[in-house]
């Protein structure tokens, strides 16, 4: 590749000109925040679990996949063609609650029965165990889904089709056509940020988590049953992953599929590490950063300025590497968090 002044400079000027139009900025920001909301919900459970226990939960993506399929199942069974948009949205909220409850219970049971016996080993074994369980969950899901005549990949279109028309249509914001779903995702994202913030700052277990991510041994020394807190927090983290999965159910870029088990995991890792493992504030900031970077590079590609198809993915993982090179502990992370 050679840099030719005569062609490259006008191209850069042209790009900047297109970038600073209100429609472009509106598109990048609204889509970016919508994606950021999804990334936040996908990643926050992972960061809570790591912050308290130092366990990197590799089942996180598989749990999101379960959430997406369970949510999709309930929606497909209860929605018919004539169902109105408001009813669908109300059902969606019900689904969120159901999936959250189910997966919180499942996650707690998983932590209690399988992870608890190996806390005394090196962190590597917790990674290995959760990774193995993630493999099993993915395969079981594939078997179950296939037996019901649904292809595990590409995404299950039946469930995606239950989204109300107001979300699939595009609306004009400052001249940019933007899908209605993004607004919904932003609203849900704000609710999730506020909800988790309230949990962390206004509840007893939130206090344990904040204290535990600072100094787990001291928390234990103060007579708090850390093991019980682990079980509950692991459950909540899993429940949040499930909610993230439900959120992906209507998203045309994702949708319920067996591939979520790995894709969600990798993206959640990126967000959590850029933000700093175990930091709530960092996860919010990193989700916004990654979301905006994603929508910006998607725009670059969509307008044909850059022809490299993998640009958004490459940028996101590139951000991870750059962040780890210049600031290994992440945006708001504390070095050597989680006691190792």
């Amino acid at each position: 590749m050679t840099f030719e002044l005569a062609t490259e400079v006008p191209l850069v000027i042209d790009t900047l000109e297109r970038l600073f139009q209100p429609s472009t900025i509106a598109r990048i920001i609204v889509e970016g925040l919508g994606k950021a909301a999804v990334y936040f919900v996908l990643a926050v459970g992972l960061t809570l679990v790591f912050g308290l226990m130092g366990v990197l939960n590799f089942t996180h993506g598989a749990m999101a996949m379960l959430g997406a399929y369970i949510g999709g199942l309930i929606m497909v069974l209860s929605v018919s063609d004539g169902t109105g948009a408001l009813v669908r949205i109300a059902l969606f909220v019900v689904v969120l609650a159901v999936v959250f409850a189910l997966l919180t219970g499942f996650g707690s049971a998983f932590e209690y029965s399988l992870i608890r016996p190996i806390y005394d080993r090196t962190p590597m074994y917790q990674i290995l165990l959760t990774f193995g369980v993630a493999l099993i969950l993915e395969e079981v899901t594939r078997i179950v889904v296939l037996s019901q005549g649904i292809q595990p990949e590409p995404p299950w279109s039946g469930a995606m089709g239950t989204a109300p028309a107001v979300f699939t249509e595009r609306y004009d914001i400052l001249g940019a056509p933007i899908r209605g779903l993004y607004a919904f995702e932003i609203v849900l994202g704000i609710v999730a940020v506020v909800g988790v913030w309230l949990f962390l700052n206004r509840t007893l277990y939130g206090l344990y988590i904040r204290a535990g991510s600072e100094d787990p041994e001291m928390v234990e020394a103060l007579g708090i049953d850390v093991r019980q807190a682990f079980t509950i927090v692991f459950g909540l983290g899993t429940g949040l992953a499930g909610i993230g999965g439900v959120l992906l159910m209507w998203d045309p870029l994702w949708g319920p599929s067996a591939l979520l088990a790995i894709d969600v995991l990798l993206y959640a890792f990126v967000v959590v590490i850029i933000g700093g493992l175990g930091s709530f504030k960092g996860t919010v900031a990193a989700a916004i950063l990654v979301g905006i970077a994603d929508s910006f590079t998607t725009w670059l590609f969509a307008t044909g300025i850059v022809t490299f198809t993998g640009l958004p993915e490459l940028t996101i993982f590139g951000l991870l590497v750059i962040m780890l090179i210049i600031r290994p502990q992440g945006l708001y992370g504390v070095e050597e968090v989680g006691g190792h």
């Binding site: 990126v270 490459l314 780890l324």
Partner: peptide, 27 residues
């Protein structure tokens, strides 16, 4: 770059590099 970190961070950093190469070679 990676050996400045230990434990989980090292694992994640090497994974991050591998994913960048994967996405690059894929496109």
């Amino acid at each position: 770059v990676s050996f400045r970190l230990t434990g989980v961070y090292f694992a994640m950093l090497t994974l991050g590099f591998a994913q960048v190469m994967y996405e690059f070679i894929r496109h």
